[in-house]
Design a protein around this nucleic acid. Structure first.
Lengths: 398, 398
DNA sequence: AATCAAACGTCCAACCATCGAACTAAGTCA
DNA sequence: TGACTTAGTTCGATGGTTGGACGTTTGATT
């Protein structure tokens, strides 16, 4: 007989199970170190796994490195990430800085630099600047002979059209409709992915720390507020690529404070790093960057601590609604402010108070495991995912 | 060379494209009436489409019925839904009633009855009662010779475990952990799916009215408030199958009103049919069912209208947050109260006022096209989807 | 020491969905 | 009547996946 293609409204179907990217990740994260352990994990035929490992060996992602100890039979050939087997370029643009890094296929940052850059310069000059930085990095002696496989770029605004172009960004004037992916890809001659920064954090946390979690939210608390959404193991973009934008939800604590969006009472006006910094400066405290707020809180500055606590409560109210609605297994908090203990505590408190038991009984709330590099790690891993899923786009340079 | 299984973090990949279920739906909804028109729509090889149509003919879903007019060449053989070619049983349990219907493969209700039934009787007696009703229906002379292919059941509470069992329902005491799917399936000897009622509405609206919309929310305003979520063309269940439960989100208008959930200020206490009915009764207005509220509003009853308008505003505030977060293309309002014009108007007003332009510019807000049968239609179509995707589970009885 | 069983990995025939091209069928149009 | 168009089927070819046979390497058993 005949049976139709698998489909399911019901089952939460994990994407790309057993794909080369999946296998590579399992080896990279230490979940498996041989073909047979991979077979046990992904439950595919040994021949299938072998063929894919073959592919990864051929393309220099993996190497065989001797044998492991016997388990009562023939010793497994050890599989390892190949040293110098290729890196990903990753750039995470913030409000005033760009974090540039090389990421290995295991998602480990190799060389990280942070440079000042103002996105208000517009897409053209930003692309030029970025290409120059990438070229510099690739020409550096450390990377001699190491292939650069792809570039991942994170932007603090909504990105649409399969990661190609920016749509109506509130924080990036002059960027609407900028289709920077193609330009970058053509001029750098490598595959490029472009994504929203919070989405990249979500991908990074998902792939590198919680690959088994299917429903995952990552809140980025930096200059602005963003949220990356992973549903059924996939990034949820929404209709316009704007999903996760909770900056302009109305919260009581914001009262009638006007917001840049034209409305009043937005979450952003009380809970974003920019808002807290502004409020602190109005009270005479020297603050230039969200990380200064974190430092103040860690030093026990009472005003800063109070403001962060207040922010966490407003954020918590919004996230309580979102958690009830989305019912995630995990809520990760990242961004510059994530390290402030009162933030996480306040958030936990409000969410556990306001959410249904059913929604919270399976919910974990934690800080991002990848710290300030979360964005670039996500960018690198998403780019890696891309080239392993669509090898046609790969034209390894150098 | 070799390319890996398709996967994508980025692309919104439509599930089951070109599957028999998809083809059947295209014929059922009038989108196609011949093999060649199907080929044009789904863009698969003619041979592939032919094989699948063959399958649907063999299994008596479709029939060929003569020829259509020529388009300048050979006339296409007309494909039609087969009359008497099999029906789905569908049951939608509400607070005090159960709506039982037979649904044809096009999603059209054939025979609909509503019977009083109290779910507080518990799962066992409900299953017994339901099986009796199903047997009665199948033995009725109208259905002589018509195969009943599957059963879909909707329940007003969270359903987990691939539609198998109920989890911590607030409105269904004694139901926690009830795994009614297997029992029903074994005793009725047919495939059974069980789902949350709002999720079923979402499936019904998605499949029968908006198959091309990938990101879709359906709010059910009945005795309670529920929301079905479709992300990337798939039903989003969340970690515990509780996704979409916005009943207990705090809204300002609810003040400190205590809620059955133990918290205060829940949306449910101001916006649910039950709450409005109770408030009206407290003012001496005779109301027994949410549909009575609708009637009062349509008659211009000022108190009822005011309350519905107030409810719509509270719901709107919650949905504004959800729309910003989820960025759907479409928000459908269903349930007993959906027909009240002030509800839709109020909801639209608040959402367009409170949401980002980016989130609303691609957003449509409308009433459910399927009216009171939305639940049973969704139940039937989900059951159909199930048996066409997993023919192994099918053991057509009668 | 010889044997056996277990574990690891490879090779290969078979399978199955899908595709594309060739082919039949049945019409239109000049 | 012949050329062309559209509809639908048949039939290899393709390509990814599988399961099993096989070779290899080891520890455990006798």
């Amino acid at each position: 007989m005949w049976y139709p293609c698998s489909m399911d409204y019901q089952r939460d179907h994990v994407p790309e199970w057993g794909s080369p990217a999946h296998l590579l990740r399992l080896v990279a994260t230490g979940g498996a170190n041989s073909r047979s352990s991979l077979v046990r994990l992904v439950k595919l035929a040994p021949s299938t796994v072998s063929a894919r490992v073959e592919y990864l060996l051929e393309h220099r992602y993996l190497v065989e490195s001797g044998n492991a100890v016997s388990q009562g039979g023939r010793r497994p050939k050890l599989l390892k990430i190949r040293d110098g087997g290729g890196l990903l370029l990753a750039v995470d643009f913030g409000a005033s800085h760009a974090r540039i890094a090389t990421i290995d296929v295991a998602g480990r940052p190799q060389a990280v630099t942070e440079l000042p850059w103002d996105l208000a310069q517009g897409p053209k000059r930003t692309v030029d600047w970025l290409i120059e930085r990438c070229r510099e990095l690739m020409d550096s002696p450390d990377l001699a002979g190491v292939p650069i496989r792809a570039l991942g770029v994170g932007l603090p605004g909504p990105v649409e059209n399969r990661g190609g172009s920016v749509v109506l960004p509130s924080r990036m004037p002059g960027w609407h409709g900028a289709a920077i992916r193609e330009t970058l890809s053509e001029r750098l001659e490598m595959p490029v992915v472009v994504e929203n920064d919070a989405n990249l954090m979500a991908v990074g946390e998902h792939l590198s720390a919680h690959p088994d979690v299917d429903h995952l939210l990552v809140v980025k608390m930096g200059t602005g507020i963003g949220c990356g959404v992973i549903s059924a193991g996939r990034l949820h973009h929404g209709a316009m690529g704007a999903a996760g934008d909770i900056s302009h939800v109305r919260v009581p604590a914001a009262g009638d404070t006007p917001c840049a969006c034209g409305n009043t009472g937005c979450l952003e006006t009380v809970a974003s790093g920019a808002a807290i910094a502004q409020a602190l400066q109005a009270r005479g405290v020297e603050v230039h960057h969200p990380s200064d707020i974190l430092r103040l809180v860690q030093e026990g500055h009472p005003l800063a601590t109070g403001m962060v606590r207040e922010a966490s409560r407003s954020l918590g109210e919004v996230m309580a609604t979102v958690v009830n609605f989305f019912n995630p297994s995990l809520l990760v908090v990242g961004g510059a402010l994530a390290g402030a203990p009162p933030l996480l505590a306040g958030l936990r408190g409000v969410i556990y108070e306001r959410c249904l038991p059913l929604a919270t009984q399976s919910l974990e709330i934690e800080a991002a495991s990848t710290g300030p590099n979360a964005g670039v790690i996500g960018a690198g891993l998403l780019a890696l995912q891309q080239i392993l899923s669509h090898p046609s786009t790969e034209e390894t340079t150098r």
